[in-house]
Nucleic acid binder design. Structure first.
Length: 502
RNA sequence: GGCGCUAUCGUCUAGGGGUUAGGACGUGAGAUUCUCAAUCUUAAAACCCGGGUUCGAUUCCCGGUAGCGCUACCA
């Protein structure tokens, strides 16, 4: 139960790699809960694994959370009333609690070697028993302990697990109970003096007055071990909420081989933070009624509830994320999308590293034109191919394009069009007039008229409206860009040449 | 092996002792457009299996099965 009435939750990642999508979802649920209840969202860095922890990952962690739109009230960078917020800075305290447990006879020294322990475990496994610690060192007398320590043997410290079923309440799963026999007396401090995770979290959560522990369900089997620590330490047990796992399409735990799995990946792909947040919120949670999908941040905070979190694992669905992202691209202020879009086009080498005013104006128009066609902003450079790439031969190699030129009509249309498109730049009005003339001259209309021209200009019979396309092409052709944009005239001529030589 | 968690359309999910089992993504069809995207309309698509309780179970209980997790001097 909560220490006082104030909701205090924490997100406690290890800085051992990129922030994984499953972890961000955990962070998000913690954050939503805190914001809704007017509580505190605390960031704590779990870096007791010195070997794997790296400072740069910690920095990136903070950046990724910020990018998503999550802010924290206490943390290693901003401080707070219960420091330190980095486990590596608390070693002395973990040690002190260990001494206390020893003194109160709630923990004991264990001299068993790794080999002994391993063979015990193998034996248990072979006999189809639960492999738990035998409790061998539990009854060692004080003299022997003193003698062996004096002789230089380095013992680990084990917690005496209370001898009754261990139960706890989980908001998403109800009451959970484990027999104490399956837990055994766990090591809380290694012989090296380094404390163990299941012990450290308890102290940290208690120190920081955490009221609700919201985390992944891979911790559910750890929870009774932690509850045992709370009990022996005489500390109040918080409320728990274990979130289900996020799976890949093959129903296996989402991992790198499924593609993008880190927040950084999604950011680089041009997924908007709003879209990712909205999507993640819907993975394992649904609003009352379950019939609403679009949730901006504020609505999410208003509607979210831990009671409505689903206990079953969820498959990550990129298609739905794409759909949401498309939605948020269209919702966003155009300036924002233009700004981001230019970055992607520069990265692809389609725009120069520094942009002058005329290029900016043109690029903005280009992005306005293409953005409705993409799921993610990183698809912009490819879509921009209709402007930057003009390859008549490749276009004609596409079967459905070739079809449009199977008879003579298609060619006649393009020829008639080329004659009239010789002015540069061609205005949309002139284009329209030209098309009307072509229509009468070639005696075709509708698709037969538009398809050949579109194929000649952008290599496909489908694409954006000519009204917007023509000015973009013409203006682009007048700019100095890393990749030359051919004018309408150039395109028509080149295409005709390719058609003729076929 | 033991222990634990989970189980509704392909996917995310709503629902709950009697329902035409609802919504969304995706898919199919149609409308619109020169075309594509978008948009709108529409269709197909689900209660894991077996027992029990009950007048009646997809819903409650038990078992099975499957998936996942934990089973460390990792976190």
């Amino acid at each position: 139960m909560a220490i006082d009435n104030k909701v205090r939750v924490r997100f406690a990642p290890s800085p051992t790699g990129q922030l994984h999508i499953g972890n961000v979802r955990t962070a998000l649920f913690n954050w939503l809960f805190a914001r809704q209840k007017g509580g505190a969202f605390i960031l704590r860095i779990e870096d007791t694994d010195v070997e794997r922890s790296e400072a740069r990952y910690e920095t990136q962690l903070l950046e990724d959370l910020t990018w998503l739109g999550l802010d924290w009230d206490e943390g290693p960078d901003v401080g707070g009333p219960y420091p330190p917020y980095r486990q590596s800075d608390k070693m002395a305290e973990y040690q002190a609690y260990g001494d206390r447990l020893l003194k109160e006879n709630k923990a004991y020294y264990c001299f068993c070697t790794a080999e002994e322990l391993e063979s015990d475990r193998q034996k248990a496994l072979a006999e189809q028993r639960q492999p738990v610690y035998s409790g061998k060192c539990r009854t060692l007398d004080a003299d022997e302990v003193a003698r062996r320590r004096a002789a230089g043997e380095a013992p680990a410290i084990r917690l005496k697990t209370p001898e009754h079923p261990i139960r706890f309440h989980d908001i998403v799963r109800g009451n959970v109970e484990f027999p104490h026999e399956v837990i055994g007396d766990q090591i809380i401090i290694r012989s090296s003096g380094m404390p163990i995770y299941n012990y450290v979290v308890v102290i940290d959560d208690a120190d920081m007055k955490i009221s609700h522990v919201i985390r992944g369900d891979d911790h559910i089997s750890n929870t009774p071990k932690q509850v045992a620590v709370y009990e022996q330490l005489g500390l109040p047990v918080p409320e728990f909420a274990h979130l289900s796992t996020i799976l890949g399409p093959d129903r296996e735990r989402l991992s790198k081989r499924h593609g993008a799995t880190s927040v950084a990946n999604f950011r680089e792909m041009g997924v908007l933070p709003e879209a990712l947040m909205n999507y993640l919120a819907l993975l394992g949670w649904a609003p009352t009624g379950g019939d609403r999908e679009l949730f901006p941040k504020d609505e999410l905070i208003k509607e979210f509830s831990l009671e409505r979190v689903t206990p079953s694992p969820a498959v990550f669905d990129t298609e739905k994320l794409n759909w949401l992202n498309r939605h948020y691209i269209k919702q966003s202020p155009p300036e924002k999308i233009r700004e981001m879009g230019k970055g992607f086009l520069q990265q692809a080498g389609l725009l120069p590293p520094t942009l002058d005013a005329s290029v900016v104006a043109w690029a903005d128009k280009l992005i306005d034109l293409l953005a409705p066609y993409v799921d993610r902003l990183d698809q912009l450079p490819e879509k921009a191919g209709i402007i930057f790439k003009h390859d008549p031969r490749a276009a004609l190699a596409v079967p459905e394009n070739a079809e449009a030129f199977a008879g003579d009509k298609g060619k006649a249309v393009v020829e008639a069009f080329a004659q009239r498109a010789s002015v540069s730049p061609l205005t949309p009005e002139q284009f329209k007039a030209a098309m009307n003339e072509v229509k009468t001259e070639a005696g075709v209309k509708g698709k037969d008229l538009f398809h050949p021209v579109r194929i000649a200009l952008i290599g496909s019979h489908s694409g954006p409206d000519f009204d917007r396309l023509i000015p973009l092409i013409e203006e682009g052709s007048a700019l100095k860009l890393p990749v030359h944009v051919k004018s309408v005239r150039e395109r028509a001529q080149d295409f005709l040449a390719a058609l003729g030589s076929k």
